[in-house]
């Protein structure tokens, strides 16, 4: 199950993260534990997803450093005012995002972590390190 479109018995997470390495690894983690995932590279893309009526989104996992015309904090404020039914989880960095994703997995469709969040963070850090080398 991978579609971000509304599906019976599935929960959807909108990930907002400007770092493709972190965004992709966390997105795959959530897909492995049964969530439908929409990946936004910045806050502007998040608004596009939130404005698309065919997309059913339950949770927004937003890196606070996500860029765009607005900040992650501004997105969270907008959601609280305009889409209060949505849960917003702000994360400051890959470690917090991975831990938040693990918590979502424990309450999600399959009620289990596909692997430990520490492994996710370690993998992200190794990919980033090799990219800079």
């Amino acid at each position: 199950m991978s579609s971000g479109a509304a599906q019976p018995d599935s929960s959807s997470v909108l990930i907002v993260d400007g770092d493709i390495v972190s965004r992709h690894v966390i997105a795959d983690y959530l897909r492995h534990c049964g969530y439908a995932v929409v990946e936004a590279a910045n806050v502007d893309e998040a608004y596009v997803a939130l404005g698309e009526p065919s997309l059913s989104i339950d949770v927004i996992l937003c890196d606070v450093s996500a860029l765009g015309s607005q900040s992650g904090f501004a997105l969270a404020s907008w959601v609280r005012s305009n889409r209060p039914e949505l849960e917003v989880k702000l994360a400051g960095g890959a470690a917090m995002a991975a831990e938040t994703a693990a918590e979502l997995c424990e309450s999600g469709p399959h009620l289990e972590r596909p692997y430990e969040p520490e492994a996710v963070v370690d993998y992200i850090n190794r990919l980033r390190a090799s990219r800079l080398a």
Binding site: S2, G4, I20, E39, V48, A49, E52
Partner: peptide, 29 residues
């Protein structure tokens, strides 16, 4: 985003792993 998501989800449903990049800079990373 919506085009990227639809293509990505379709390819995943067909059995492929997909990395979604918003532009060439992300792809090069």
């Amino acid at each position: 985003l919506l085009i990227r998501m639809m293509i990505g989800d379709k390819l995943r449903d067909e059995g492929f792993d997909v990395i979604e990049a918003v532009n060439a800079d992300e792809a090069l990373a």
